[in-house]
Amino acid sequence: MNLTDNTTAACNEVSRAALRLQVYLAHAGVASRRACEGLISSGRVSVNGNVVTVLGTRVLPTDDIRLDGIALQIETKFHYLVLNKPPMYICSSSDPQGRSLAKDLLPMPRERLYNVGRLDYRSSGLIIFTNDGDFAAKVSHPSAKIKKEYLVEATGPIPDTMIAEFEKGLEIEGVFYRSTEIERLGRKSIRVVLIEGKNREIRRVFSHFHLHPSKLHRIRIGPVVLGSLGVGESRALTEEEKEILLQRRT
């Protein structure tokens, strides 16, 4: 069965079954399941006119489900896009500080799109957007072990000890960090590959060694490479890239 068949089967199954509310929201293209849990907990979601804050609440596609008063429906057409995010764009559906949103750089299909994983505000490079909740959950889960590759430039010389410790693994404030691959490119620059992708991992390791990344640029997610994609430009994932990501071959 190919990806199209899987997608059609999933849509048919979703149309018949009761779903956890956060799963329904993800299938409606609102955000990733984890982000949807936050929306529910904050009281922004209602079911049949009643605000629901309990995670795991079961709903049917026939229920009246709303986010901030706006009715939602399960998406039936999925999109998968790659964006070369510029720095100073935030990966979020909205921002109370009014900062520029990465998703606003994408073409404007009717369906909602949200980012799979994150790049922080100052970082740049490759990020995937979709409205397929199942795809997002599988690709972003740590068990997928998808490699992510970065080019990093520092404000000062990078010591050999930092490279050696990051490759071996080190604990910072109770959290263990280790690169899968690391290579010196210059006096102030490295190439680093991560699998787990803990929150702000590279920046925390740099800070531990009293350094600051002046540039943090992601160039690969599993089989998907940035290549010649221009800053702020996007393209569709290929069928082959989607299949490999779902098969967890990195």
Rank of each mutant, 00 (worst) to 15 (best):
N48Y: 09
G230Q: 11
A144F: 03
L246A: 08
P157I: 09
T76E: 15
N2S: 13
G227R: 04
S15E: 10
I182H: 05
E243V: 10
N50P: 00
G49T: 09
A35W: 00
I190P: 06
G186R: 05
A102I: 06
F78A: 02
D120V: 03
L55T: 03
G29Q: 12
V23E: 11
R118G: 12
P159T: 10
F209W: 14
R187S: 12
R187Y: 11
Y114T: 06
L119I: 01
T62H: 10
R33L: 10
S189L: 07
N50T: 14
R44P: 04
V224S: 06
S94F: 05
E153K: 14
E241R: 08
G69T: 07
V224T: 04
A10N: 04
N50H: 10
I219L: 09
R203I: 00
A26N: 04
P61T: 10
P86E: 06
A236M: 08
F206H: 00
A144I: 06
Y114G: 03
R99G: 11
G197V: 08
G125L: 08
T4N: 11
V116H: 03
A137R: 10
T53R: 14
H217A: 04
V52E: 12
N115T: 03
Q97I: 00
T238G: 01
P107M: 07
T57P: 04
N131Q: 02
I221H: 06
P86V: 10
N131W: 02
R110W: 01
L126W: 00
R200F: 13
S228M: 06
T4F: 13
P61I: 12
L3F: 14
T8D: 11
S228I: 03
L113N: 03
S189V: 09
K85F: 02
N50S: 12
V14G: 01
L60H: 12
R33N: 13
Y89N: 13
E243D: 11
D68F: 04
V175H: 11
E196K: 09
K145T: 05
R58N: 12
V225M: 11
G125V: 08
T62K: 14
E241S: 05
I190K: 00
S94H: 11
H217D: 11
I195C: 07
M88Y: 09
E13L: 13
P96C: 09
A18S: 15
S46D: 12
F129A: 02
T7R: 12
S46M: 01
A144W: 02
K147Q: 09
F209R: 04
R118E: 09
I221Q: 06
